[in-house]
């Protein structure tokens, strides 16, 4: 995928490391993104995701490793032209209108004249903000601000777009609209890096997912592959039990599961195996209140790989 110098990959991260004092934020991370892909980068808070994102946009001085965008070193003019970054923060000028913001960010990207006018028109249309072009940002709804934030990052029509949690704090309608915007980009062949804490978003939009924790990529692949790697073909069983003197952790461990408080987490190959599980619980004096059978999804994989403990 990366060997053809005439057709370089949109993003190559090669053995990147970044330390802040004694803390290693990114630890020897390597990956590539294929052209036209939507690459989901998932990770709990403090996993090193933000440092990796800032490294990709050229805002971090790496301790080692390299990053290239379409074959150009990150930070170079060519790389900057090919990369569009939509930061998590609403990084727009609140007192300017939508159009004025797009003008400013377009000029920062080197656009002028008709090219700039065309880009602004496309952005306003793409973000469904054409009817609010003259409205100051501070008068927009949260969803509109998010869409403008995205548009400002894409004003120069980059070939690689980094969307950092673009749906934070918006209502379902706005979120759906943002999904449509991302899908429109994909249909145009734009390569996308998408970070989110909403697993259903990654499932819907991303065709390749990487999970980062403690500064390292701990798993990557398609959603189906990640589920298969973590759970095989088994389904998860969640069983709530009443107060008991039984050692739930030991009971669950004997059946290949875990327990937390009064909840037992197990897995079964086939749904019919639940009957045997319930029978064993009853025989050991457990008062089963509720049982849920669930096919593992991306969230299951995420929690399985990164654990359930709270992060920073």
């Amino acid at each position: 995928m990366s060997g053809d110098p005439t057709n370089p990959v949109p993003l190559r991260v090669d053995a990147v490391a970044k330390r802040f004092g004694a803390v290693t934020a990114v630890d020897d991370v390597s990956f590539e993104i294929a052209a036209g892909a939507c690459f989901g980068l998932l990770g709990p808070n403090g996993a090193g995701k933000s440092t990796l994102i800032r490294s990709i946009v050229g805002r971090v001085r790496l301790d080692s490793g390299s990053i290239s965008i379409f074959g150009h070193p990150v930070g170079s003019s060519a790389a900057r032209a090919d990369l569009g970054w939509v930061p998590q923060e609403l990084a727009v000028y609140p007192l300017l209108t939508c159009r004025e913001n797009l003008q400013a960010f377009g000029r920062y990207q080197g656009l002028h004249g008709n090219a700039l006018d065309d880009a602004i028109a496309w952005c306003l249309e793409w973000a469904a903000l054409a009817d609010r072009a003259g409205s100051p940002v501070r008068t927009l709804s949260g969803g509109m601000k998010r869409r403008l934030n995205m548009a400002a990052g894409l004003i120069h029509r980059p070939r690689l777009v980094l969307l950092d949690e673009p749906t934070v704090g918006v209502d379902p309608q706005s979120r759906n609209r943002i999904f449509e915007m991302v899908e429109a980009l994909r249909s145009d062949g734009t390569t996308i890096i998408y970070t989110t804490h909403y697993m259903e978003e990654a499932e819907r939009l991303c065709d390749w997912i990487a999970i980062i924790d403690h500064g390292q990529i701990i798993a990557q692949g398609t959603k189906e592959a990640l589920v298969a790697q973590s759970f095989g073909s088994r389904s998860s069983v969640t069983m709530h039990v009443g107060a008991t003197r039984v050692d739930l952790a030991a009971w669950a461990a004997a059946r290949g599961g875990t327990a937390q408080d009064s909840v037992v987490f197990c897995s079964v190959e086939k749904p019919a195996e639940i009957a045997g599980l319930l029978e064993a619980a009853s025989g050991d004096g457990l008062d089963v209140l509720d049982v849920t059978l669930q096919r593992p999804n991306l969230e299951s994989v995420f929690l399985h790989l990164t654990g359930k403990e709270l992060r920073a």
């Binding site: 800032r54 946009v57 050229g58 805002r59 003019s77 900057r80 032209a81 990369l83 970054w85 930061p87 998590q88 923060e89 609403l90 990084a91 727009v92 000028y93 960010f105 920062y108 990207q109 080197g110 400002a152 990052g153 120069h156």
Partner: peptide, 10 residues
């Protein structure tokens, strides 16, 4: 965050 965005442009 606008400063980061501007500096990541040209």
């Amino acid at each position: 965050g606008a400063l980061d965005r501007v500096l990541s442009a040209r």
